[in-house]
C-alpha cells in the first residue's frame, strides 16, 4: 500500500493565507482533496470547526463543499454555456448567505465584462471569474489549485492580487497549492510537502504584495 500522505499534522486558522509547495507526486493534490472535502482519509482525523470530515459520507462532504469551501482550479472550469455573471450566479443560487454576482465580479475587477461568455474572455479573466464564483458564497475556506498554472506572468499576477484581496478583505482562510516557490512570499505560512510528509513549515513575518512577485 502506498501512502499519498502520512503523519501530516496541520492546523489552519481563519484569515490565514497558506501556500503549499511541492513537486509533482509530493502529495499536494491529496492534501487539497482532503481539505476541500473531495475525499476522506483512510486513517486519522480531520475536523472543520468541530465538524468531523474524516467520517463524513458523500452527502456530508457535498454539504461541506457547498457551505464552506470555494474552489479555484488550474483550468478555470467555467461552464461555457453561462456568462461570467451566470457562472457566479450558479453558486449564489444554492448558497445560504451569498453576495451578489455583481459584487463578487467587482471584487475581482471584472465589473465591465459580466455578460461575456467564457469563450469571449482571456485566460486571466476566466480565472478571475472562477475566483468570483468561489468567493461569492463567502466561503470560510478558499482552495486554489495551481491558480496561475495556465497563465503568463502578468496575468498570473492579477489573479494572485485578486486572491490576496479576498483573503484580506473577507478574512477567508486561503490555501494556494502550487509548485511555484515564488508565491511563498505572499503567504502567512508556507508548507513544503515531499513524499507525503510536511518537510518544512515557515512563517513569513511580513507578506509580500502579490504585485511585487516576479517569476
Amino acid at each position: 500500500m502506498v501512502h499519498a500522505l502520512a503523519g501530516v499534522d496541520l492546523e489552519c486558522r481563519a484569515g490565514e493565507l497558506v501556500v503549499v509547495l511541492g513537486a509533482s507526486g509530493s502529495g499536494k493534490s491529496t492534501l487539497l482533496n482532503l481539505l476541500g472535502g473531495l475525499d476522506t482519509p483512510t486513517s486519522g482525523s480531520l475536523f472543520y470547526r468541530g465538524w468531523d470530515l474524516a467520517g463524513a459520507d458523500e452527502a456530508g462532504l457535498t454539504r461541506y463543499r457547498r457551505e464552506a469551501v470555494g474552489f479555484v482550479f488550474q483550468f478555470y472550469n467555467l461552464i461555457p454555456s453561462l456568462t461570467a455573471r451566470e457562472n457566479v450566479a450558479l453558486i449564489t443560487e444554492i448558497a445560504s448567505d451569498p453576495m451578489s454576482p455583481e459584487e463578487a465580479l467587482h471584487m475581482v475587477g471584472l465589473g465591465a465584462r459580466m455578460d461575456h461568455f467564457p469563450a469571449q474572455l482571456s485566460g486571466g479573466e476566466q480565472q478571475r471569474v472562477a475566483i468570483a464564483r468561489a468567493i461569492a458564497k463567502r466561503p470560510a475556506v478558499l482552495m486554489c489549485d495551481e491558480p496561475t498554472g495556465a497563465l503568463d506572468v502578468s496575468t498570473g499576477k492579477t489573479v494572485l492580487e485578486a486572491i490576496e484581496r479576498i483573503n484580506r478583505e473577507l478574512g477567508t482562510l486561503t490555501l494556494i497549492i502550487t509548485h511555484n516557490s515564488v508565491m511563498a512570499e505572499m503567504a502567512d505560512r508556507v508548507l513544503t510537502l515531499s513524499d507525503g510528509h510536511i518537510t518544512g513549515e515557515k512563517h513569513n513575518r511580513t507578506r509580500a504584495a502579490a504585485s511585487t512577485l516576479v517569476w
Partner: peptide
C-alpha cells in the same frame, strides 16, 4: 463530464 464534475466539486448535490 468536466462541467458536471465542476458542479459537483463546487457543492452541487448529485441530484442537482
Amino acid at each position: 463530464q468536466r462541467e458536471l464534475a465542476t458542479l459537483r466539486v463546487i457543492g452541487f448535490t448529485r441530484g442537482e
